[in-house]
Design a binder for these strands. Structure first.
Lengths: 197, 197, 197, 197
DNA sequence: ACTTAAGCGAGACGGTACGTCCCGTCTTAAG
DNA sequence: CTTAAGACGGGACGTACCGTCTCGCTTAAGT
């Protein structure tokens, strides 16, 4: 049944300690001042224990990320039936988080991790706390006829995430109303034309 | 005119050697495997000469960047009179560059630099080779009536750059036609009013 | 028994390599052109390994010294029964060594080390290869009645070592017969009483 | 007449400033923590001005020494007519100076300079403030019949200086009465024998 | 007066070594 | 077989000085 042969099992306590410490130090000092040695010391764990289970610093951070230890749990986009309002609300919340001075350093560090670690990059949306719920919601809206059939959702979502990243990198908070304007661009109201039929 | 009083002048030769070597090694090895010591050795310069004039590795790279030593000179956006076509052409070229396997590592490294160095981040567009010509072109188009008056240009440009970054981080080249779809979203055709025949 | 609990033991191989290299380079280049970095490189050892176990260059040299790696093993003073002759023989040998051109640089370097390192200084006699056997021999001679009871041995030994150092510092080899004259001064023949004759 | 051709003469002010600063910093920090750059900065002088006139740090210190800027002016040995008492008095004063904690570091540094600089070494006695007056006095005493004709003065003086150096290197102040005992050894009273002519 | 050479403060330069930090691997003793 | 501890070879850091050089200026001696 178990395919493990013998000897001690992996210590869950050590694993948790490492991940918790990583998250703590990452938030505190950022990615590049994060050191394996520092994590080991702070977590009361041997360096080798870290190297045994994780290949690199970025993998370690990646695991933290995917376990939700670095960012607030995914913001669930609201669902009031009006997709544009909902998306604006959600994007405003995202901007508010990423633009807050106490968070922007952390977010920039996450961008660095995404640049260095392929799996973090590939799941960039999830990495930044953008739930798949968002896509789900958009798909649903499309089916419900809230959005025109041909709306390029992939491009829209990329643009949303991209704009957040750009703001963080530029050290320029989103201008007031930016979320609304952006959503207006990406999910345009269909022309109201004389809907005769 | 010169307000320098005494002492030898800064050696332009050393400055050039350092910047050239930095650009070369950056392109070759990426940002995090770039070392001050390596640059000094390769440039035939004392480490202290680097530390005398640049505070950090990222400043050094920033100067390379702003002198156009890391990226091809700004791509001039075409001007055929059709702003949407022109922008699509330009964006396709951008995607083609960033998505090329031999460039994507470099671009990811640049994102890291933008994350670490404030001035690079603030000039993110210039850093990525996005000329101010682009904005100029857009402004001109707006005045010429090619674009509706209220078009949120800032948001549009942020979105363009953002999408490119997202692709690079996600290791996912832009899908065919992405440029066109994106431009279509960001610069929508004004509804063609029932303009008398 | 060992009170060490965990972790790899100190590498004796590294320790030996460091000390051997130190002795070699010290003899070759003298104290002030001896560098930790040079020792590490030549010994095939990481710098940190040196810093882990020795606080300073002078400590390193001190350990070499006390392990007899820098000087010929202590010259054993002869014991023919005639303390004055024996001491003269020994002192001549000492002068011969310190005054030899190929050794005087090394001896001067040792004086420098004695000046910089307290423990070397405190054991100056041993540092210069002056065996405790010498003092032993003198004590024995005193007890045996070869020397008058009140002879200030400490002062005499200090003077012997001092004179050797002075010669080395002055770059002036001991004059012929200096050893004999000096011993004559320091261990004077007791006045030959009017012994029945 | 002067064989200097033309151009500005050597600045005496700079020379003095350098020597004064050297003396000050030498006393303050010792020989090995003395730096040319530190001297130049503190003296308000260009480094090149130092290198123009002195070949090395040790030469600089040597000049200070020989100008009497590092040690109290030579202690003049007293002359009461009793050479042994006079010498004891003088030696006690020497020991008192070299053994004082605030001076011993300086004296050790001087020994280092003597080891590194030949001319300082050769004039070791003068370097340590041992005036030629001492030898003069001894010669006079010999001629005056205070000392036996054959007394090896050279060896005696070397021994005196040597003992002082040994004490300083050993970090062991001279024992009380050491001066007297030592003088007793080196300048023994001639046997009072029945001088029956 | 004009030229020329030297001295000077300042400081940039190529270089060497410093002592520290961290890497990733290996060794030891305990469980 | 895992773990905490920790030594190891290695590489880069940022700093301190080295001794040389160049700069713009001043100070004399020659012309």
């Amino acid at each position: 049944m178990a395919d493990r042969r013998r000897g001690a099992a992996r210590s869950e306590a050590a694993r948790i300690a490492v991940l918790e410490t990583t998250a703590e130090l990452f938030a505190e000092r950022g990615y590049d001042r994060l050191t394996i040695e520092g994590i080991a010391a702070e977590a009361g764990v041997a360096k080798q224990t870290i190297y045994r289970w994780w290949k690199s610093k970025s993998e370690l951070v990646a695991e933290c990320l995917f376990e939700g230890r670095l960012l607030p749990t995914d913001v669930v986009p609201p669902n009031t039936g009006d997709i544009r309002n909902d998306l604006t609300t959600w994007l405003d919340a995202l901007f508010q988080f990423t633009d807050a001075p106490e968070n922007s350093g952390l977010v920039r560090s996450l961008v660095v991790v995404a640049a260095e670690n392929e799996s973090v990059g590939r799941q960039l949306d999830a990495s930044l706390g953008v739930s798949t719920l968002l896509t789900t919601r958009l798909d649903a809206a499309t089916e419900a006829g809230e959005l025109p059939a041909g709306t390029p959702l992939k491009e829209a979502v990329d643009a949303l995430i991209g704009v957040a990243i750009v703001h963080v990198l530029q050290r320029t908070p989103a201008a007031p109303g930016a979320a609304k304007r952006l959503v207006g661009l990406l999910l345009p109201e269909p022309p109201v034309g004389p809907v005769g039929g």
